[in-house]
């Protein structure tokens, strides 16, 4: 037993253990079944096989090999790094469903049906931009700043608030539920919305139209599944029905763009929703047997 080992054992004399330890040094690994020379012969055989395989390959200058390996690795590394850095995260909600998303700064987003957001996977600190296509409700942590970019360069500058954005094609609406947000478009000066204020900046509107926002709630009504319309074109109402119930809607004998609807529907029940929209407008509807398409007639 070495001095070190004694130290490890705290100098405590334990003769049984010492004897046991002594005996371990008399052990040996069981001998090879093949024997050393047989192993050597097998080794030589494998080497021979290996080298006959290798000699058939034309030899390339080792320097060129090394350089090309280095170049390839560098290229792969660069591409990987760049694609990693500039890759974007994309979240999509399908028709008939919503999605909850948490941003890297722990702000929350609820995506309404058939909507899409996108932001850079990395560099959130330096590049705080979110692209939105569709409808989303944002609940941003106090003090956090970022921008929401939508089509037609209508952008929203956010500083810790709760607000809803509806950006589908030419339509664009922002409603503020808490704090304030700034809306910028190429045409207008920047507009600041405070709590309880909303704005409609759709392309067809000549000037920004203020919208009333129910200031008793901090969330839009759609979060609870209620869709309210105030003198909205029927086409927008039907589009929303189609998104919420994941159905395609065909119409006959009337122009939905030309008629306006005031009322509401709930997301729960398709027939009920269709009744609420169609009956006041003097329309009849027919749901297909697989309930994926709806025909509306005058």
């Amino acid at each position: 037993m070495s001095k070190k080992e004694r130290e490890i054992l705290n100098g405590n004399s334990d003769s049984d253990f010492e004897r046991f330890l002594e005996s371990t040094s008399k052990l040996k690994v069981p001998s090879s079944n093949l024997g050393k020379e047989a192993v050597w012969d097998k080794l030589m055989q494998s080497i021979e096989q290996e080298s006959t395989k290798k000699t058939k390959v034309a030899s390339i200058s080792p320097l060129i090999v090394r350089l090309s390996v280095a170049a390839t690795l560098t290229a792969i590394f660069t591409i990987a790094t760049l694609s990693y850095k500039y890759s974007t995260l994309e979240f999509v909600s399908q028709k008939g469903s919503t999605a909850n998303i948490v941003l890297p700064d722990s702000s929350a987003i609820i995506l309404n049906a058939d909507s899409r957001i996108e932001y850079r996977r990395f560099g959130w600190l330096s590049d705080r931009e979110i692209k939105l296509n569709g409808e989303a409700y944002f609940s941003v942590k106090h003090g956090n700043r970022f921008s929401v970019l939508t089509e037609f360069n209508r952008n929203i500058i956010v500083t810790g608030t709760k607000f809803n954005v509806f950006a589908r094609g030419a339509q664009f609406e922002v409603k503020c539920f808490e704090g304030s947000v700034r809306v910028e478009t190429p045409k207008t000066k920047s507009i600041t919305l405070s709590k309880g204020k909303g704005i409609n900046l759709s392309v067809k509107c000549e000037s920004p139209q203020p919208i009333e926002v129910d200031s008793t709630s901090t969330t839009p009504k759609w979060i609870a599944g209620d869709y309210y319309f105030n003198n909205s074109p029927l086409s927008e109402v039907l589009d929303e029905l189609s998104r919420q119930f994941n159905v395609s809607i065909n119409f006959q004998g009337f122009k939905p763009e030309a008629r306006n609807y005031t009322g509401f529907f709930k997301r729960k029940n398709l027939t009920q929703a269709l009744d609420l929209v169609c009956i006041p407008m003097g329309l009849t509807y027919q749901i297909s047997s697989d309930s994926t398409s709806i025909k509306i007639k005058k």
Partner: peptide
């Protein structure tokens, strides 16, 4: 023991 001999062969093949 047999596995040990196999491993020895692989190791020396790599050395070669």
């Amino acid at each position: 023991v047999d596995l040990a001999d196999d491993i020895v062969q692989e190791v020396f093949l790599k050395l070669w």
